[in-house]
Amino acid sequence: MPREQILSRIRQALGRDALPPEAAAALDARRPAHTRISYSDDLVERFITRFQSRAGTVARVACRADLPAALAAYRAEHGLPARAAIAAPLADLPWGLEHHPGPAGQEEVLGVTGCLAGIAEMGSILTVSGPAHPTTLNFVPDYHVVVLPAAHIVRHYEDAWALLRARPGGLPRCTNIISGPSRTGDVELTIQLGAHGPRRVHVLLLEAPESAEG
């Protein structure tokens, strides 16, 4: 069996047998505290600056009830049709357009989702897959609009891992950490947005302390 072959080759090279249970348990209990990038900026400001530096856009929205208007403004700005894939937890809002909860099909232009957190460190949003958030909504439509409550912005990756671990069932099938729209530098290292994923990613930053995932 290749499994046994590989493991025994490794143990031979390391000059030992399989680890005794106590040693294995010690390894499994290891939870390192690595150096984090220190910064003192306000979390929201840091998130916005970093996210924008990666060609993402951000609009501040006072409360959940204002989301439809904010989306309408964004649609008007970009000439988007009155149709979208909108994740289930947001479906209750009066969006004023035709929408479905996903998955996103090939012709989908606009995806609207929530997210588990924003990570201010490098300006990213973190989404978790599930019935409330089909992964295709993040990648298939040309435009991805993400609702992020300001209170859900965390400082470092480590803080986001803690949120993931705290979920019932632990890690979802797919966790996406997204810093701006899709890009490529594969032709002469010229940065071009919208390679395969969304051409634009827009965050609606909810100032009110409410959950976006419903």
Binding site: P2, I6, R9, R50, S53, R54, P101, G102, P103, M122, G123, S124, S129, G130, P131, P134, T135, T136, L171, P172, R173, C174, T175, N176, I177, I178, S179, G180, P181, S182, R183, G197
Partner: peptide, 30 residues
């Protein structure tokens, strides 16, 4: 500072999921 996408994949499509692969395989190559 970062790449655009960091994607963590843990297993195949789960009950209730609307998308995602039905099977998830990892081939560990020596």
């Amino acid at each position: 500072e970062t790449e655009t996408y960091t994607t963590l994949s843990t297993g195949p499509r789960r009950p209730g999921d609307l998308d995602g692969p039905e099977e998830f395989h990892v081939v560990l190559v020596d």
